[in-house]
Amino acid sequence: MIQPSSTAPPFGRFEEAWPAATRPGLLPEPVAAALEQWRGSASLDSVLVVDTDPEVADTAAFCAAYDVPLDASANCVVIAAKRGQDVTYAACVALATTRVDVNKAVRKHLGARKASFAPMDVAVTETGMEYGGISPVGLPQGWPLLIDEAVAAAPHVLVGSGRRRGKLILPGGLLSRLPNAEVVAGLAG
């Protein structure tokens, strides 16, 4: 099989970047499967994957190591929203320069009495992704995906690839077209 040539990313200092759908070996199964569902769409080519050092996967270290502006990096966090005995899991995406407002914006939006960050083991098990690399691409079916308006407005953002080794770079607006995605004003501040 012929490997695709590298593509220049819109920011950062990476040895190589490729259209993510052409490098499924760099992605966990849920992310690769989600990208496969986009097959034939013009959007697919705009999703890039970069192979990076997992030792610097945390946002601040990553941005420093790869010369990525913090305001071009977005974090995806898993939330556990409770109402009575029912627990709903959701994912929220916000720029690295902000924090998701879990106690007000997320709780209210999900109609929960209590909302908090999901425990690490639950987030990993439920998503099939690695902690520190959870991606908004490939989330479990039915999960709400709440996206801060600043992320959706960004020309390109860097998000987790589902693994600590590697990241995805894609247009911010493309995230709003993912299943169950909703752009939420005031999600982060």
Score class of each variant (00 low, 15 high):
82 K>V: 08
82 K>M: 11
83 R>V: 06
83 R>G: 04
84 G>E: 11
84 G>D: 13
85 Q>D: 10
85 Q>P: 02
85 Q>R: 14
86 D>I: 14
86 D>Q: 15
86 D>L: 14
86 D>H: 15
86 D>K: 15
86 D>T: 15
87 V>R: 13
87 V>Y: 10
88 T>N: 07
88 T>W: 07
88 T>I: 13
88 T>Y: 07
89 Y>I: 01
89 Y>T: 01
89 Y>G: 00
89 Y>P: 00
90 A>G: 04
90 A>C: 09
91 A>T: 02
91 A>M: 03
92 C>F: 09
92 C>G: 09
92 C>V: 10
92 C>D: 09
92 C>P: 02
92 C>S: 09
92 C>I: 11
93 V>Y: 02
93 V>D: 02
93 V>Q: 04
93 V>L: 05
93 V>F: 04
93 V>C: 05
94 A>L: 08
94 A>T: 11
94 A>C: 15
95 L>A: 04
97 T>S: 11
98 T>F: 04
98 T>H: 13
99 R>L: 15
99 R>T: 15
99 R>N: 15
99 R>V: 13
100 V>C: 08
100 V>N: 03
100 V>K: 03
101 D>K: 03
101 D>P: 01
101 D>M: 08
101 D>F: 08
102 V>K: 05
102 V>Q: 06
103 N>W: 13
103 N>C: 09
103 N>P: 03
104 K>H: 14
104 K>I: 07
104 K>M: 09
104 K>F: 08
105 A>D: 00
105 A>L: 03
105 A>N: 02
105 A>W: 00
105 A>R: 07
105 A>Y: 01
106 V>F: 09
106 V>M: 12
107 R>G: 03
107 R>W: 14
108 K>T: 12
109 H>A: 12
109 H>E: 13
109 H>M: 07
110 L>Q: 08
111 G>Q: 13
111 G>D: 10
112 A>D: 07
112 A>Y: 10
112 A>G: 09
113 R>T: 11
116 S>E: 04
116 S>T: 12
116 S>A: 14
117 F>R: 08
118 A>L: 06
118 A>K: 02
118 A>G: 06
118 A>N: 03
120 M>A: 07
120 M>V: 13
120 M>G: 00
121 D>E: 12
121 D>T: 10
121 D>V: 02
122 V>Y: 09
122 V>G: 05
122 V>P: 01
122 V>Q: 11
123 A>V: 06
123 A>N: 12
